[in-house]
Every structure is written in structure tokens, then in C-alpha cells.
Amino acid sequence: MDVIAHPRTYERATETVIYLRSQLPDVLQNPRVAIVCGSGLGGLADTIEDEPKVALPYENVPNMPRSTVVGHAGKFVFGLVGPKKLPVVLLVGRAHFYEGHSMDLVTFATRVCKVLGVETMLVTNAAGGLNQQYAVGDIMCLNDHLNLPGFVGMHPLRGPNIEEFGVRFPPLSDAYDLELRKLTHQAWRKLGLHKQKRRLHEGVYAFLAGPTYETRAECRMLRSFGADVVGMSTVPEIVVARHSGMRVLAFSLVTNCAVLEAGPRGDDEAVQAMSKDELTAFLSKGKANHEEVLEAGREAAKDMQALVKQILCDYAEL
């Protein structure tokens, strides 16, 4: 698969922005914040005001890749948030590398946001919890990441540098904006969310290419590397956002707890007397599935929407 950036990426992004602005009233033409809605989190579109609001399906937008994943609607939603009427654009659904898209297409919407004039990207995802202190439904604010596909060349900045966006060798040690993370914890307490069962963490996101969920051995390896959650998105977008000079805030919703213990051996005494159905149930304990991801997203939607809206309202005051 070709992972080299398309030589006309800047021109294509500009074409896309020209189309988007042709569909928007003046007040929505220059969003300050872009919000990427991960699996099951499309309800974040409810954080914006009812009017003015413009939804544009990706299928009608020039150059945009199509998402084929359940839980990803595939549309831009432009609107205003809060008393300061902060202009934002939501990306309800994203393209994933595992769908067969090139890294250039996976990150194309991020490039479009830069050309639109977006200054901050707020990125969300559904992820598996590796840290055993995390529970299903908890939210993790990213403060670092592991880009495993990037180690072997599946990197969104591979190829000739696109000077219109950024420098050849962008640093990532400051990828996750500290002021915005500070704002997040303040918003969490301001809303009283610290008094309930769901917890807010900070930690490290491990990005894998997917689409399979991880094996037990892979989960143990990732945890030993310092990863707190694992998923199949977000990092390429963050790399490109930082290359483009945008500020980044990112959240993972913990939708399942990864299985870290080693699987049973075929010669274990405990399994010798088990029937086929019992063996299947024994091995399947803790197995992840996409329906579980979507359900956890639905359960956490109210808190995620409240948190994001409060952060955006506070951000408008900066």
C-alpha cells in the first residue's frame, strides 16, 4: 500500500475548503476548533447550537474519503458553541487505515481543517483499556502516544515534505497541549463529574493499524511499553495536526478492558474435563467486540458531551 503523501495534498485540501465555504453562511466560514468524533461518539454534534448549523455528508464533499465503519456517520457539521458563539466544525466519523485508505487519505480531513483556519483539534476515540486501574466507561485524556505503525514506515509524513503545512522534522514531545489538559481537569470538576463513578485519567495511547483487536501477548507487550489504552486511530491525525501547527487535545473512551493474562494451555488440568462449549466460553472471557464499543459510547455520551461543551466554552474565554 502506498503510504507516501499525495503530491497535490495542499491543492486538494484547498479545493475541498472552497467547496465547504460555498455551502456555509459567513458566521461559520472560519471555525476555530475541529472536533473529531470517534466510534459511538457522534452525539458530540449535539453540543452545538441548533441555529445556524450546516451538515455536509462526506460523500458530497470533493476529495473526501468515505468511512465504512458502523458508528461513523461520515459528515462535517458546522455550528456555534456556547455563549461566546465559538465557531466549530465536527468531523462525525473518520477514515481509518485498516479500511484500505492511504495515510494521506486518513489524515486528509485534518489538512482540510488547517486550510479552513482551525487553530485547535479536539480528537476523540474508543479504545481498549490496558491499565488495570481503568474501568469501562472511564475517559482518558492523552498526554503521549506510541505510534507502532510509524515505526515501520506507515507514517503520515512519509514522502516529500509539504511545506505549506509545516517543517520536515516536527517535534512531538509537546504534542498534547498542557494548557488544554489543565482546562480539561478544571472543566471536569466544574461540572461535578469527579463525584460520580466515571473517572478521568491522563495517559498514553498506543496506535495499531488494526482491524483485529489485540492478542493477549500484544496487550502485555503494549502495557510493558507504558501504554494505558490501545486503539486504531487518532495518532495519524495528531501527527498531521502538530505538523500543521495546530494545538491538540485528545480523549479516549475506555470501551472494553483488554485481556492481559496469558491464555489457558491445552495441557492445563482445569480444561481437561471441559466440553467444547465450556472451552469456548473459558477462552472468550473478556473478548472485545465492536457492539460493546458502541454501547459504551452510548452510555458515556452525556458526560462526554457535557465535558466537551464546557471545555469549548472555557476555551472561548482564552
Rank of each mutant, 00 (worst) to 15 (best):
D138M: 09
H145T: 09
R168S: 10
N125W: 08
G153P: 12
Q133F: 01
L178N: 04
P156L: 07
E163K: 13
G128C: 07
K195W: 03
L157D: 06
F165C: 03
C141S: 10
C141W: 00
K114G: 04
Y176M: 06
D174S: 10
G117M: 09
H155A: 02
R181L: 01
P170W: 01
G166I: 02
D177N: 15
R158A: 15
W188R: 00
M140L: 15
M154E: 14
L116K: 01
E179C: 03
L146V: 12
K190P: 00
L180N: 08
H145P: 03
V152P: 01
G153K: 07
L157E: 09
A127H: 04
H145Q: 14
D138N: 09
E163G: 00
L142Q: 05
N131G: 05
V118Q: 06
E163T: 08
Q133T: 11
F207V: 11
E179T: 13
T120M: 13
S173V: 12
N147C: 14
Y134D: 03
L146H: 10
L191I: 11
M154T: 11
G203E: 04
K182T: 13
A187M: 03
Q196A: 09
M154C: 06
E164I: 02
A206C: 14
G150F: 14
H185K: 13
V136D: 04
Q196T: 14
R168L: 07
L200A: 09
L130V: 10
K195V: 00
H194G: 02
L116G: 04
K182W: 03
L116Y: 08
H145Y: 11
